[in-house]
Write a protein that binds this DNA or RNA. Structure first.
Lengths: 229, 229
DNA sequence: ACCTGAACACCGTTCAAGT
DNA sequence: ACCTGAACACCGTTCAAGT
């Protein structure tokens, strides 16, 4: 029985949860969120649409599994032997780049309570905070603040990014955005108008990392922590 | 002509962008995201499904307008005469409570680049940062860090909250979550296991505000301008 | 146990036709 | 200008029937 199953899984045309998720990711990357269809997926897997439901509960679960896989891969590639601060920046950049490359995975946020992908990030961040000497009762708040920021900003960046063609004029996009902000009502939006010019030479990744650093600085400043380093 | 239009708008059965958005919000609040249908909307407005398309481009625009309206109302109710820090907390809580009451509005994040709702929040936060004396070249980074955190955490909280019935056992939900974390693999998730007990007496709003304070502390601690490159 | 594919119950969106 | 509602081109999901 176990032997039969193992043999079936070795056949390259056999369905499996993993193979379905894999195909879903390819479809999502190639055609965007609207490209993921049970019919399209079935065709790609050379099977019937209903067959997929034997391995996967529904579309929501499939999307969640795909998003988790993306985050999981990103976390697997994170260097973890540098200083805690540097490792945290690495984790953050891992999420940022993963969502940038797979913008559809940002929906991960709105899926059920505490998806596995986010739990992985939370775990890794938490460990670094411990290494950093953040007191125990502040660890959860600190970790969850970082995680919320990381996913929030990464998702925002990804959906902005996917609206203009990848290689092409990112600068043009920022220029249009800056012009729009400059055209806002002066009485209602003085702040946005004042910073609009800055939008034109704007480095997403650097800006994102600066935000991480602000939070890290806040952690170092607010509670007392053991003077190590 | 203008007179005829004004008269038509005064008729209570006349369609208009605002009335459509209003009905959409009611539908979304009552039945959740899946409740918003052009057919259901048409029935509620006592008209044909296609009529709505005269006033609204498509479902995406409608959802975006509804989300923006929710944020707009929340911002209108924010007290603005306290200290900058207190005002920022007020703005943050406004978003938090708005998304908690209307969880479907969290999708706002994933909609097009810089929705009006988020721009309003960014503007208000930015002004307070100016009042706080944050140097000009650090203002955008600071404001956008706060906004990303605020929407990220609020959305996360809202989708978690809507999974358990409102009035009923929130504690039960947290208990189940804590138990699940405690059951995680010890080698793979030591951090999550260690903080799981803390989940049981967890105050979402207090935790959320603590995150805001961490960021504010970080801004106060590193008044030096972030390197650009 | 696993797969097939037709069928069901929906959707968003369009558009000729009305007023 | 604005509204109607039938029609089109899809969906996710189910399920009797197959192997």
């Amino acid at each position: 029985m176990a032997k039969a199953k193992a043999a079936a899984e070795r056949r390259e045309d056999a369905l499996s949860h993993d193979r379905i998720v894999e195909a879903a990711i390819e479809l999502l990357d190639a055609e965007g969120e609207t490209g993921l269809t049970f019919r399209a997926l079935a065709e790609r897997l050379a099977t019937g649409a209903g067959a997929i439901y034997w391995h996967v509960a529904n579309k929501g679960e499939l999307l969640a599994a795909a998003s988790d896989a993306i985050i999981g891969r990103a976390m697997a590639g994170v260097a973890t032997h540098a200083s805690p601060q540097k490792t945290i920046r690495g984790i953050a950049l891992g999420v940022f780049d993963a969502l940038d490359a797979h913008p559809w995975a940002g929906a991960l946020l709105s899926r059920g309570p505490w998806q596995t992908g986010m739990l992985q990030v939370l775990e890794r961040i938490g460990r670094q905070l411990q290494a950093l000497g953040v007191p125990e009762r502040a660890q959860f708040t600190a970790a969850s603040t970082l995680v919320s920021y990381i996913f929030g900003e990464s998702d925002q960046n990804a959906t902005n990014g996917s609206s203009h063609s990848r290689t092409a004029s990112r600068d043009e996009f920022l220029g249009v955005l800056a012009a729009r902000w400059e055209a806002l009502d002066a009485r209602e939006f003085p702040f946005l108008r004042s910073i609009a010019p800055r939008l034109r030479h704007h480095d997403d990744r650097a800006e994102f990392l600066a935000g991480v650093d602000i939070i890290l600085a806040g952690l170092a400043a607010s509670p007392r922590k053991p003077r190590s380093h």
